[in-house]
Structure formats: structure tokens, C-alpha cells
Simulated scan of single mutants.
Amino acid sequence: MSSTDYQSGREALGGRLRELRAGAGLQGKELAERLGWQRSKVSRLELGKQTATASDLEAWALALDAPGEVADLHSRLRGLDSQQRSWRRQLARGHRAVQDRYVVEYRRTSTVRGYEATVIPGLFQTPDYARHLILLNAELMQSPRDTDEAVNARMRRQEVLYEGDKTFRILVWEGALHALIGPAEVMAGQLDRLIGLPQISLGIVPLGAPLTLSPKHGFWIFDEEQVVVETINTELTLESTEDITLYGRAWDRLEESAVHGQQARRLTGRARASLDLN
């Protein structure tokens, strides 16, 4: 997370602490006396000039006879630990370093739940599809071109698909099957790859399926311990219990609308048949 975002979050937490104190009808000095703290500590926490610890927040709530606020305060504190990485900074020397990091991440993960709304997931990409996607991204971000190295690293990531101790449950919005990343021949090869995947749980969310959640953006849940979300300019890593639970619930709702097996292959085949290969 950038220093500005972190400070904004810390100030927001301080504002909530101040609201709770004022709501209890206490002055800062009175609360400090109850807690056995220096008055300056209460002030620093409320102004966002000091980061509270989990025990600080619990003591604060209990001193105000508001134990029901502890969970919310802890959640706000964990939110400060969310990591936000700028793509511009990550790609300053090219794309390979990012791909290498993903290789490590997937190798140390046992269970992955993922969802993509606009592209075929990197785990399933052909080299040609990956190459066009990386080139498009490099042009957008105006980053150095290390395309061959980045593609090779992305292909190394796919080795985890054949490791027997891992579980992959992946969902793809049907629109991604029709998004032309490169020429029709590239898309044809990519869709053939999807149809011939090894025994992996791949679900397609059909365009006409009843939904209990809009498709939104892609996200990946690793071992139910962290969620990675990619936007145009940043990569977010979320680790709070609340965030992981929320994204898990979103994945479950999308999975309810997905089709698998032969039905998924039929949708993929239909997308391939729609390509103009002449």
C-alpha cells in the first residue's frame, strides 16, 4: 500500500476511535486516565499519527463499555495491512519479474480458486495468446519489452497444473472466450487448449445465465489466506478475514451460475466455431 493510502486508512481509524470516545461522553484526558495511558497517546491515535495495535483497540472499546466494537476496529486495522502494488513500478524493468513471482506463489499454494471476466487465465494460456496479451499490456503501461522472457516465465507457472498435490477451481466469464486477444488463429489455438485441459475444475459462467452477482473484476484466492485482485494500474493483495470471506462468497455465487464438463466444452467450442479463420 502506498504511504498516502496507509495514512488515509490510519486517519480513518483514528476518526472512528474519536467517534466512539465522544459518543461515550468522555474527554480525551478522561479516557487516558481509564486506560492508564499518556494523554498524548490518545491524541496520536485519534489523529492518525500513531498506528494502534490490536490490544490498543480492544482496550479502547472495553474502556468505553463497547465490546461489540472490537471486531470492527480489528477489521479496520487489518485493512491497513492490505498491499497495493503499482503496475508502473512493478513493470519498470519489464514483465518477467512479475511472472517469476507468480511462479513462486503458485508453487507454494495448495488450493486456488480463481475467476476471470475478460481474459483466459494465465494458467491456461498458450504462448501465442500470452505473447499478444503481454505486448498489449506493455504498450498500455509503456514498460520495457522483455516479452520472450515473460512468456517463458508464464509457461513455467503452468507446470503446477500437473502437480498432484494441488487443487485448482477456476471460473471464466463466457465473454472472455470471445475477446480477440490477437488474430483469430491465436484465439483458435487458445480455445483448443481450453478444450483439451487436464482434469481441472474449469467452469464457464454463460452470458445468459441467471446471476446473483454481477461479473465484476477477476480475483484469485490462495489457500483461503489471501486474495489477489488486479486492476488496470495496481495489484491488490488482501489478507483480512473479512475480505477473504467476502471474495469467497462472491466466488461461490459465480460458481452457482457456472457450467462445467461437457457444457463448458460446448460453450468453448461454440466460441471457436464463431472465429473467422479464412
Rank of each mutant, 00 (worst) to 15 (best):
G164Q: 13
Y115V: 06
S2K: 00
D243S: 08
G175W: 04
R96V: 15
D100E: 14
D243H: 02
L171N: 07
D276S: 11
T241L: 14
H260T: 12
A117F: 07
L236E: 15
G94Y: 05
E230W: 01
A32L: 00
D243V: 07
Q90D: 06
L236R: 09
D128A: 07
I232K: 10
I195Y: 03
S274C: 06
S110E: 15
I200N: 04
Q84K: 03
P127E: 02
H95I: 00
Q125T: 10
M155L: 15
T245D: 13
M187P: 00
T126M: 03
E149G: 11
L123K: 03
L213H: 12
T241Y: 11
L191W: 05
N233F: 13
G269Y: 02
R85Y: 04
D276V: 09
D81Y: 04
L91I: 07
A32E: 00
A63M: 04
L64F: 01
R113L: 07
L202Y: 09
V112G: 02
Q262W: 01
W251E: 01
G68K: 07
T111K: 13
Q99M: 14
Y162I: 04
A271R: 04
M187Q: 03
K166P: 09
K41W: 02
A271P: 06
L77M: 06
R145I: 09
G68E: 10
L80S: 00
D65C: 05
E185T: 09
V227F: 08
E242V: 15
V42L: 05
E235H: 06
T167Q: 12
H95C: 08
L236T: 01
L35P: 00
S8N: 09
H178S: 11
T147E: 11
V151D: 13
P67G: 09
L47W: 02
A250W: 07
D65P: 09
K166R: 15
F219T: 03
A97G: 08
A138C: 07
V119G: 00
S55H: 13
L211I: 11
L236W: 15
A130G: 13
N152R: 15
I244V: 14
N152A: 15
A176V: 12
D243C: 05
Q50F: 01
A188E: 10
Q262K: 08
R270M: 13
R44F: 12
T111Y: 12
V103C: 15
A184K: 04
E139Y: 06
P206M: 09
P144F: 03
E230H: 04
